[in-house]
């Protein structure tokens, strides 16, 4: 059952608010996507909104602003009006229009593809951490190098957002990517197989072995299955890495998939 939940979560996470820039798109407010305005909005946010919505937008007394966009895509005008006029227990901000739009641009940036956002941190330092000190590349691939135990991150800047990248590193179990349960199989012929479960039903398992090879195994060939469900990604990066190191890593990852 958990499997279904994982899948639903991760599908919704691919619905980034990235519909702008399509052929037939309507004109948007000039502050949307503007890095300086977003940064100004972030400052206002930390002062007046973070207390309820969390410093990274992950939620608290107010809802998370990182994923709600996926369930309730709001128009820019709606977002602006919600901020200015308040809703429920949320007080009206009543700011001058420019400052209101800055906030709207910041809130929207929380669900925009990371690659389109400016981010603090040193990408070169992040790259070094990724490929050596922090050990990320033993599980993750970028550009055809690295391990198979975790998702390929070559395009992660286009499929994730800045807050989510940070959260993926600090709290790997918060939102899972399907296809990374680990299984040890004992087959009826006595042999053993271990790998990542790319897909499983009551009738068939699709395993990916250490070297990337796929094995589609019918259930009738299986004697027993041991499944490890919590993420195999280390959960202790929040203590092992400094705040700056996480920022550097995010800065490196957000570039993956850039043109």
């Amino acid at each position: 059952m958990q499997f279904d939940r994982i899948l639903i979560l991760s599908l919704s996470s691919t619905l980034l608010w990235a519909q702008h820039a399509k052929d037939d798109e309507a004109a948007k407010h000039p502050f949307m996507g503007n890095p300086d305005r977003i940064e100004a909005g972030r400052k206002t946010y930390l002062g007046g909104c973070a207390g309820c919505h969390g410093p990274e937008g992950g939620g608290g007394r107010g809802p998370s602003l990182i994923e709600r966009g996926a369930w309730h895509p709001m128009t820019d005008e709606n977002l602006y009006a919600t901020i200015q006029k308040g809703v429920g227990i949320m007080p009206a901000a009543n700011l001058p229009p420019d400052r209101g739009w800055e906030l709207a641009a910041f809130v929207r940036s929380l669900t925009a593809p990371a690659v389109e956002m400016k981010a603090p941190g040193d990408a070169a330092a992040g790259e070094k951490l990724f490929w050596s000190t922090a050990g990320c590349s033993s599980c993750h691939r970028i550009g055809g190098k690295g391990g198979f135990a975790g998702p390929d991150l070559s395009n992660i800047g286009r499929t994730s957002t800045l807050p989510k990248l940070r959260r993926s590193i600090l709290d790997p179990d918060f939102e899972r990517t399907p296809g990374f349960e680990r299984a040890n199989l004992t087959l009826r012929d006595g042999s053993k197989l271990s790998g990542l479960v790319k897909d499983r039903t009551n009738y068939r398992l699709q395993l990916q072995l250490k070297d990337g090879t796929l094995r589609s195994v019918p259930v009738e060939a299986i004697e027993t299955v041991e499944l490890t469900q919590p993420s195999i990604m280390p959960a202790d990066y929040k203590t092992k890495l400094t705040r700056d190191e996480v920022t550097h890593l995010v800065s490196y990852l957000r570039q993956q998939g850039a043109d």
Partner: peptide, 20 residues
């Protein structure tokens, strides 16, 4: 897709493409 079962092994979706 697993060609025997029709189940997804992986997907790649470009949500930012500028044309459909």
């Amino acid at each position: 897709l697993d060609a025997r079962s029709g189940r997804v092994i992986w997907r790649y979706v470009d949500t930012q493409a500028k044309k459909e």
